[in-house]
């Protein structure tokens, strides 16, 4: 599970941080393991121009989030909504034990919430628990 590409994304995550003018924003928290993830998108004309994620969690959840951010720029909101579990599993390209699937999918859930919720950055009213 802990192949080199996973560990390098964990140690040096891509798009880690926050966006000043995010148009879409969502936060997820998994109380079972304390994984905490925020995704921010800058969307113009239905297309993702930029993305950032922040939070803390295990190597699997952080690496998955980092890898996911690498493929979202340029995609439309509709395309984001169509991303599936299998897309994440393909990105990770590791055998996941059943206990760790939730970790891997936290990023997708957060991205979907951002895509569907279309929350602005100022609107932090909704905090969902997994």
């Amino acid at each position: 599970m802990y192949r080199e590409h996973i560990l390098s994304h964990y140690k040096e995550p891509q798009h880690f941080g926050s966006l000043q003018h995010a148009t879409h924003h969502a936060h997820s928290f998994n109380p079972l393991c304390g994984d905490d993830l925020t995704m921010e998108l800058l969307v113009k004309k239905q297309q993702v121009e930029d993305v950032r994620f922040s939070g803390k969690g295990c190597a699997i959840s952080m690496a998955a989030a980092s890898m996911l951010t690498e493929i979202v720029v340029g995609k439309t909101i509709d395309q984001l909504k169509k991303l599936t579990k299998d897309d994440i599993f393909k990105l990770l390209d590791i055998p996941l034990s059943p206990g760790r699937i939730k970790c891997a999918l936290l990023c997708l859930e957060t991205l979907h919430k951002a895509a569907y919720g279309e929350q602005s950055k100022g609107d932090k009213g909704e905090h969902h628990d997994v």
Binding site: M1, Y2, C33, G57, C58, A59, I60, S97, G99, R100, C103
Partner: peptide, 13 residues
């Protein structure tokens, strides 16, 4: 620097 679940998963190996 290592999440407890990562420690437990790697121990399992």
């Amino acid at each position: 620097g290592v999440h407890a679940h990562d420690v437990a998963s790697l121990m399992d190996d």
